[in-house]
Amino acid sequence: MTVAETSSATTRDALAGLIPVSIITGFLGSGKTTLINHLLKRPEMNRVAVIVNELGEIGVDNELVQVSSEQMMLLNNGCLCCVLRGDLQETLRELFIKRRNGEVIDFDRVVIETTGLADPAPVMQTLITDTLLLEQYRLDCVVTLVDAVNAPGQLNQFSEPVKQVALADRLVVTKSDLVAEKQLTALTGRLNEINPKAPVRVAINGEIDLPFLVDVGLRSSRARLEEVERWLGADEDDGHGHRHDENVQNFVLRFEKPMPWATFTQCLEVLTALRGPDLLRVKGLVNVEGKAGPMVVQGVQHLFHPPLELAAWPGADRSTRLVFITHGIPRQTVADLFSAIGAVTANRRA
């Protein structure tokens, strides 16, 4: 931000001050460690706290390590590497408290490397269920690494890799040099079926453009149009006639008219109560009656981030846009639910 752009608003931007968290997920051997190592060598990534499962796992060159303790090491480039102890919630809390006390670096980003078998949903939920974490961190991006050699088999065989792909904001294909062009195209197509909203990039020697992976999540309640679009993903139609993965549905619901907040929350309550585990990810903007700006909504399965109002609508489109990634819940079911509850609410008000 330049001086000229420095905010003169007399209120705090509830999003702008939060520390972004990137979640790097992907099956065993998909190259998470290699990617993180490459990221840490970037000059823009010199104040990162990386949370790994074991210090040895990150495989940082010894020359890079400046100070090391049982659970943490300070790298030469200024980054902090920290082992996940107990649960993630506790680790993130302690990291922030130590940062405030001046005991660790003033990290400006957290990168969490999940275990290969991990379901990223609980990691994402950690950030929205703990009030201390909610006040200090925001989810920036879920990056799922897909190993070009093994992924086609894994995606057919196991449910976890499908979920990892479905929940991603960004997909990175690794080990592309070990497969033929045709297989790569087929894999990219498959990824697109599971998660058409997440852009796919192929890593070359484990490297990927940094801008592709950062500043994906909303980072200001005064967000500009392009920032909102980047967060919501490619604004294509909901995929009528599109080929979908049999297990994962992706769709967008649009509502042109503002809706009462009660209608929206009732819809979500019904959805989460009946199909919470299948509601993989929901994000979007809601045009709420009587509000100047849109409400930002994001949830993972049955848990939702507290809603946040943007200062103003970014762009001319004022319609409610909700991106759903579900496990077996078709678009029509959700659309019908919204119209039914909308109609009930409207009748009640009439």
Binding site: V3, Q66, V67, S69, M72, K98, G102, E103, D106
Partner: peptide, 23 residues
């Protein structure tokens, strides 16, 4: 996380910041 010593360059009295940037 019991951390001994300083895991920040410059020791105890080094610069600390959150959402404020020295220009």
């Amino acid at each position: 996380m019991a951390v001994e010593g300083s895991l920040r360059p410059g020791g105890q009295a080094s610069q600390l910041s959150l959402n404020m940037k020295l220009i």
